[in-house]
């Protein structure tokens, strides 16, 4: 079963939030780049970056939510998550993207692209998980 969305997005997605990279550097959430995540994961002993490709985006019975099906990692494991339409994912080489960019910008002031089938999102797994 998909994970149920929370009623509000975490405050770190708000434009202007200060994010600390693994090397200690501070950046604003809207300034993060693909390389920041990749380099931070390289430093991490526990976490590694996986590619998660959007396979399907379906409507949900929960108001203002969608169910996104991802194909995760080299083994293409199918994972479904239920998130609010404004929830931002970071797409490789593109940046923040959500199912409803206008709503993300309205609620968080964070500029977003439209998340579409085929987009490859940055996600995390444990390095020890094999």
């Amino acid at each position: 079963a998909p994970v149920s969305p929370s009623s509000a997005l975490p405050s770190y997605f708000m434009k202007g939030s200060i994010i600390q990279l693994a090397d200690g550097e501070l950046k604003r959430v809207e300034d993060l780049r693909t390389e920041d995540f990749l380099q931070s994961a390289e430093v991490s002993k526990e976490l590694k970056i996986d590619s998660s490709t959007v396979e399907r985006i379906d409507s949900s019975r929960t108001p203002d939510a969608v169910i996104i099906q991802f194909s995760v990692g080299e083994h293409k494991v199918q994972v479904c998550v239920e998130v609010l339409v404004e929830y931002p994912f970071f797409v490789f080489g593109q940046g923040w993207s959500s199912c409803c960019p206008d709503r993300t910008t309205q609620l968080l002031a964070l500029s977003c692209a439209k998340l579409s089938v085929g987009d490859v999102c940055i996600s995390l797994t444990l390095k020890s998980l094999r």
């Binding site: 975490p10 405050s11 770190y12 997605f13 939030s17 200060i18 994010i19 600390q20 990279l21 693994a22 501070l26 959430v29 993060l32 920041d36 995540f37 931070s40 991490s44 976490l47 970056i49 996986d50 998660s52 991802f70 995760v72 990692g73 083994h75 494991v77 994972v79 998550v81 994912f89 970071f90 999102c121 940055i122 996600s123 995390l124 797994t125 444990l126 998980l129 094999r130």
Partner: peptide, 25 residues
């Protein structure tokens, strides 16, 4: 005197979803 307001700092990994598939081996 005005106390400086502390700004919250979030770790980079909080922004990335944990899509760890369950391995069945």
């Amino acid at each position: 005197n005005v106390e400086p307001r502390s700004v919250p700092v979030f770790p980079w990994h909080s922004l990335v979803p944990f899509l760890a598939p369950t391995q069945s081996d």
